[in-house]
Computed example of a mutant assay.
Amino acid sequence: MSASNEEFVSIDIYPELMFEEDLTPDCGVEIDDVCEQIKTAVKGWGSDEGGLIDALGSTTPEDRLKIAIRYKDIYDKELKDVLKKETSGDFGQAMKYLSLDPVRAECAMIKDACKGIGSHATLLHTILVGRSNRDMELLKKTYYKYYTKDLTGIISSELGGDNWKLASAGLQAAEEPFDPDYHTEEKAEEDAEEIWKNGQGKFFGTDETKLFKTVVLSPPKYLRMINEIYADKYGYTLTKAMEEELGGNARRGAVFAIKMRLKPYEAIAEMVKAACAGIGTDELLLTCCVIRYQDMMGHVNFAHEEMYGKNLQDRVRDECDGDYKKLLLSLLEKVSPES
Rank of each mutant, 00 (worst) to 15 (best):
E16Y: 10
L138F: 03
L166Y: 05
K145P: 01
N198V: 06
D191H: 06
N227R: 09
A121G: 07
E185H: 12
T287Y: 02
S58H: 12
S330G: 04
I291L: 03
D22F: 00
D323S: 08
I258M: 04
L329P: 03
M296H: 10
E333G: 05
L238D: 12
E175P: 02
L124G: 00
L56W: 00
R224E: 15
A105T: 03
K66V: 00
T126R: 04
K149I: 00
T287Q: 02
K187E: 15
P25A: 03
Y234M: 09
Q37L: 14
L123R: 06
N198Y: 04
P15G: 09
K259Y: 02
G278F: 07
L312P: 05
A55T: 07
K202M: 11
E228R: 11
S2Y: 11
W45L: 07
W164K: 05
I195T: 06
R251D: 10
P25W: 00
Y14C: 03
C107M: 05
V215G: 01
K221T: 14
C114G: 04
E175S: 06
D232L: 14
G170C: 00
I268V: 15
K310L: 13
L98M: 13
T126W: 01
I154F: 01
Y234N: 12
G170P: 03
V129P: 01
E245L: 09
S10H: 13
A277L: 08
M136V: 01
I38P: 04
I31K: 06
A192P: 13
E21N: 15
K310T: 11
G322R: 06
A257C: 11
M136C: 01
D12M: 12
I229N: 10
T287A: 02
E208Q: 13
Y144W: 10
R104C: 14
G130M: 05
K80C: 07
E189R: 10
T87E: 12
T40C: 03
P25V: 01
P337I: 02
D26W: 06
E158V: 00
I11S: 08
